[in-house]
Design a protein around this nucleic acid. Structure first.
Lengths: 159, 159
DNA sequence: TATTGTTATACTCTATAACTATA
DNA sequence: TATAGTTATAGAGTATAACAATA
């Protein structure tokens, strides 16, 4: 909390992580823009491409209010990338699912999105293993699967 | 470009980097919200706390249109965190500079912001050095200083 | 003529609150 | 009564285009 005086090495690493975050967003936004999608839209589409899910769950996963998802899915639906299906088990629920076109777009997004692939190619397998283990420890051994949920919502904290 | 089939280890690392990006934003937004600032406002304030600069340069650094900066600085100015000063050398230019209160806030933000400090504390010095060097190579030995510029603008790519 | 900052406009994202249809 | 999704509303960020002041 109070800044216990951090050593230069740690500050270096922190600055580098800032660089990684910046690079991640550049690539992500570039990929989304190439399909005329906003970041939020690309995020939702990518999430649904793994597995169709109720609107509510999309909101929970992306850590935003359910009302936002309505609009984002509306726009994706207008583009023909996503559709709303009834849930046979609960008539209140609408399952958001990518169309074929949406799946194709999601795949292209994902390909363009693993921005780290090329830089990582410069590292040996031993180095990549080290990097993986160090990152794991840094994140506290969180379970994987954060790949899509990654770029959360910055524009938040309004009002 | 075309997805040359990436090995599982690299995919692991990519997923972990996604986790890092997510964590970075969580911390950043939490810190900003604690001061009732949006991400964009915190970003501009942090940038100016290093060095006052023309509105134009803020936009260039944050990679957004100059017209956006007008509004963000407006809101920061209303809060008394930033002020606009004339540039003696060029009367067209307005230098955005943090007030004392703004500097104090920026400092608190920065302290709360190096989110990686605590997780990194679990790593030995040798491990931190390795991590630093690996990240440097990943980023292509970019110059440092990306700490503040880091979380760029996701909400972009609109209209 | 070019540049700086601003204004006007329109779109997206965000949260909050109220509404509906189900459960 | 509680839950899922929607609608309405308002604030913030973003880009584009046009403008005044200055270079």
């Amino acid at each position: 909390m109070a800044t216990p005086r951090t050593d230069p090495l740690t500050l270096d690493v922190i600055a580098l992580i800032g660089g990684v975050v910046a690079r991640y967003h550049e690539e992500y936004d570039r990929a989304a823009a190439a399909h005329a999608l906003t970041g939020a839209q690309a995020r939702v589409l990518g999430l649904l491409s793994h597995e169709p899910m109720p609107m509510r769950k999309v909101a929970r996963t992306l850590k935003c209010e359910p009302s936002n998802i309505t609009g984002i899915v509306d726009r994706l639906e207008l583009r023909g990338l996503v559709e709303r299906r009834p849930d046979p088990a609960d008539r209140r629920v609408k399952l958001a699912a990518p169309t074929e076109d949406g799946m194709r777009t999601a795949r292209q997004l994902r390909d363009a999105l693993d921005f780290a692939r090329e830089p990582l190619a410069d590292l040996s397998e031993a180095e990549r293993t080290m990097l993986r283990d160090l990152l794991r420890r840094m994140l506290g051994d969180e379970p994987s699967g954060a790949a899509d949920a990654a770029p959360p919502s910055p524009g938040a904290a309004a009002g």
